[in-house]
Computed example of a mutant assay.
Amino acid sequence: MRTLSIKIDDALHRRLSIRALGANLTMSEFVRPLIEEAAYPGNRYVHSSQDELLSIAIQTFALLAALATESSPQVADRGMADARNLLRERGLLDPAKDPMAPAGRVDVDREDEQ
């Protein structure tokens, strides 16, 4: 098992130590599940300091998608397929849980690339 060293301020260390002690766990045992949840969030979103930027990006994307759908449904479909591919490549979208990619489906305009 690997070791991870992080720097935290004294007040945070004190609060974590108290919580770990109250749970009758070592600091590592107490913090490890939190780190695992951040690495493998399951169906939950792990909040970060980038949440505000992310929410702006999502709103902008939603507006652009609505405009693209009105002017050209094919462009919107291609953009959504590209976005899903990028999310899958980065591990942010599980293909098995993607409602837009049922088994055997090939993304729009991708037949010639495969």
Score class of each variant (00 low, 15 high):
Glu36Gln: 08
Glu89Met: 10
Gly22Met: 02
Ala103Met: 07
Ala65Tyr: 07
Leu53Gly: 15
Ser72Pro: 00
Asp10Gly: 07
Leu25Gln: 14
Asp9Pro: 01
Met27Thr: 05
Ile18Glu: 15
Leu64Met: 13
Pro41Met: 02
Val75Cys: 08
Arg32Asp: 05
Val108Gly: 01
Val108Asn: 08
Val75Asp: 12
Glu29Trp: 03
Pro95Ile: 04
Ala103His: 13
Glu111Ala: 13
Ser48Arg: 12
Glu113Phe: 14
Ser28Arg: 07
Gly42Pro: 00
Ser5Gly: 10
Asn85Met: 15
Asp109Gln: 09
Met80Cys: 12
Asp82Asn: 09
Ile8Asp: 00
Ala57Phe: 08
Val46Lys: 04
Glu36Pro: 01
Asp10Gln: 09
Arg88Asn: 02
Phe30Gln: 02
Leu34Asn: 02
Ser71Tyr: 09
Leu54Ala: 14
Ser72Cys: 09
Leu12Gly: 00
Thr60Trp: 12
Pro73Thr: 09
Val106Trp: 06
Leu12Met: 07
Arg2Met: 03
Leu64Asp: 08
Thr26Ala: 03
Lys97Trp: 14
Thr26Gln: 03
Met1Tyr: 04
Ser17Met: 06
Thr3Phe: 00
Ala66His: 08
Ser71Leu: 12
Ala83Leu: 15
Ala23Leu: 06
His47Ala: 15
Ala66Lys: 09
Leu67Ile: 14
Gly22Val: 04
Gln59Gly: 10
Arg90Ile: 04
Pro33Tyr: 00
Glu89Asp: 12
Leu87Ala: 10
Leu25Pro: 01
Asp109Tyr: 10
Gly22Asp: 12
Val31Ser: 00
Leu93Thr: 03
Lys97Ala: 14
Ile56Asp: 15
Ala66Gln: 13
Ala66Cys: 06
Leu12Lys: 06
Ile58His: 07
Leu67Tyr: 11
Arg19Asp: 14
Leu67Met: 14
Pro73Asp: 07
Ser17Gln: 11
Ser17Pro: 02
Glu113Cys: 03
Gln114Asn: 13
Gln74Ala: 15
Ala23Pro: 01
Asp94Trp: 10
Ala83Asp: 00
Tyr40Phe: 15
Ile18Asp: 15
Arg2Leu: 01
Ile56Phe: 13
Gly79Phe: 06
Pro33Trp: 01
Ala23Gln: 08
Ala68Arg: 08
Ala65Met: 11
Glu113Val: 14
Leu34Tyr: 10
Val46Glu: 05
Glu37Val: 11
Ser72Asp: 13
Leu21His: 15
Pro73Ala: 06
Met1Glu: 05
Phe30Arg: 03
Pro73Ile: 08
Glu89His: 05
Pro99Asp: 07
Met80Gln: 13
Gly91Glu: 01
Tyr45Gly: 08
Ser72Glu: 05
Val106His: 07
Val31Arg: 00
Thr26Asp: 02
Val75Thr: 14
Ile18Met: 09
Gly91His: 02
Pro95Ser: 04
His47Lys: 15
Ala66Tyr: 06
Asp109Ala: 10
Leu92Ala: 09
Leu92Lys: 04
Arg44Val: 10
Pro41Tyr: 04
Ala101Arg: 14
Arg19Val: 05
Glu89Gly: 06
Val31Glu: 00
Gln74Cys: 08
Ala76Phe: 04
His47Cys: 13
Leu4Thr: 06
Ala81Asp: 09
Ala39Lys: 04
Ala103Gly: 05
Ala83Ser: 11
Asp9Lys: 03
Phe61Gly: 10
Lys7Asn: 11
Glu37Cys: 10
Leu64Val: 08
Thr26Val: 01
Arg88Thr: 06
Asp51His: 11
Pro33Gly: 00
Glu29Met: 06
